[in-house]
C-alpha cells in the first residue's frame, strides 16, 4: 500500500512538474476556470492595515491618562470599501480584557483614538487593536501567550459538502511560532468522488513585489500551511509551489499539523513567510478540490482576508 502511494505521489509530482514546465499558466487557468466567486469571498485580496499603534505620552506617569492612537486604513486605491470600525482591547497581565471603540479623529490620515484608564504607579497594561472594513475583511493584532483568537468567520454554505465548507480561521501567538486553525463544517475528508481534497491557510508576504531583488507578485509570495489528507501530508510551502503540497519538504517540517473537532491547526515559525512578519501577514483560509485526473484546482471555499499582526503593545507606569 505504502509503495503504491509513493508511486502515485511520484507520478503526480512528475505530471505536475511537467505540466508546470510546459504551461506556466496552468495553475492560474484552473484557478480562474474553477473558482466559485460566491464562496471565495475575499474582497479583492485587500485587507485593512494597521500602520501605526502609538501611545501618548511616550512613558505614562502616575496620574496620566494614556491615549492610544491608531493609523489604519485600506490605502491601495484598489477598493472602495473603508474602515468600518477600530477597536482597542486592553488588560492587565492575568486580568480581564476590556474592548472599546476607537474614535476617528483625523479622516485624512485614518487616525483613531481611545483613552486608557488613568495610570497608577506599577501598572502594566497590554493592549491590541483590531480593524474591520466595510467589506468584512479585518486586521487583527494577536498577542503572545497562546490564546486562540478568531481571525475571521465564514458563513455556512449549504451548497457545499461540509468537508469543503470553511467556517472560521483562528490564530494563536506562541512568541516564536504562530498557530493557525481552520474550522470546517464537517470532518475533513480525503476525497469527494474523483476529487482529492486539500486544505490550507495561506499567509501572504504582502510587500515582496516591492523588493527590487525579487519579482514575485503578492499572489505567488504567499506561503501555504497545507494538508492533503489523501497522502497524510502537511507542511508549510510556498504557494507558488502548490505541487509541493503533494510531497513533504526535504528539510525539517516547517509546520506541525494537528487535527481535532473538524479543525485543522498548523503551528509554524512566521519568519519562514517573511522576516519582519510583525509588519503583517495577510491570511486566508481555503478548501480546495483537486481533480485527480487533470490535477485542475477548484477553490471550493475561502474565508475573507485578515491582516494578522502577531504582536502586543504594552506600557508600564513608573
Amino acid at each position: 500500500m505504502k509503495k503504491t502511494l509513493l508511486a502515485l505521489c511520484a507520478a503526480i509530482l512528475l505530471f505536475t512538474s511537467c505540466a508546470r514546465a510546459q504551461d506556466s499558466m496552468a495553475w492560474f487557468r484552473s484557478l480562474i476556470e474553477n473558482a466559485r466567486p460566491e464562496a471565495a469571498d475575499m474582497g479583492g485580496w485587500v485587507a485593512p492595515e494597521i500602520y501605526g499603534v502609538n501611545l501618548y505620552p511616550f512613558r505614562p506617569a502616575p496620574g496620566d491618562t494614556p491615549v492610544v492612537r491608531v493609523m489604519a486604513g485600506s490605502w491601495t486605491g484598489m477598493v472602495s470599501y473603508k474602515v468600518a470600525s477600530v477597536k482597542l482591547t486592553w488588560w492587565k497581565p492575568g486580568g480581564e480584557k476590556t474592548t472599546a471603540d476607537m474614535k476617528l479623529i483625523d479622516e485624512t490620515h485614518g487616525i483613531y483614538e481611545a483613552a486608557l484608564p488613568k495610570a497608577a504607579a506599577g501598572d502594566e497594561v497590554l493592549y491590541t487593536v483590531s480593524v474591520t472594513d466595510t467589506w468584512g475583511n479585518a486586521a487583527i493584532q494577536v498577542p503572545p501567550g497562546g490564546e486562540r483568537m478568531l481571525l475571521v468567520a465564514d458563513t455556512q454554505d449549504p451548497a457545499l459538502d461540509p468537508a469543503l465548507d470553511v467556517l472560521a480561521v483562528q490564530a494563536a501567538n506562541y512568541g516564536r511560532e504562530i498557530m493557525l486553525c481552520m474550522e470546517l463544517a464537517g470532518k475533513p475528508g480525503r476525497n469527494i468522488g474523483a476529487d482529492l481534497l486539500a486544505y490550507g491557510v495561506i499567509a501572504f508576504s504582502r510587500d515582496v513585489r516591492y523588493k527590487p531583488s525579487q519579482t514575485e507578485t503578492e499572489l505567488t509570495s504567499g506561503w501555504l500551511a497545507g494538508h492533503v489528507p489523501a497522502f497524510s501530508i502537511s507542511d508549510l510551502m510556498p504557494a507558488s509551489d502548490l505541487a509541493g503540497a503533494l510531497a513533504p519538504s526535504k528539510g525539517p517540517k516547517k509546520a506541525d499539523f494537528r487535527k481535532k473537532d473538524n479543525q485543522m491547526c498548523w503551528r509554524f515559525d512566521p519568519a519562514t513567510v517573511r522576516a519582519d512578519y510583525d509588519a503583517g501577514l495577510k491570511v486566508v483560509g481555503a478548501a480546495l478540490a483537486v481533480d485527480s485526473s487533470s490535477m485542475a484546482l477548484k477553490i471550493s471555499d475561502t474565508t475573507r482576508v485578515t491582516m494578522l499582526y502577531p504582536v502586543v503593545n504594552s506600557y508600564r507606569v513608573r
Binding site: 492595515e49 500602520y51 490605502w75 486605491g77 519582519d276
Partner: peptide, 15 residues
C-alpha cells in the same frame, strides 16, 4: 506618501 511608501516606513519604524 502613498500606501506602499507608508508601509515601508512602517517596516522601518517597527524595526
Amino acid at each position: 506618501y502613498d500606501d506602499i511608501e507608508l508601509f515601508n516606513f512602517k517596516r522601518l519604524i517597527e524595526r
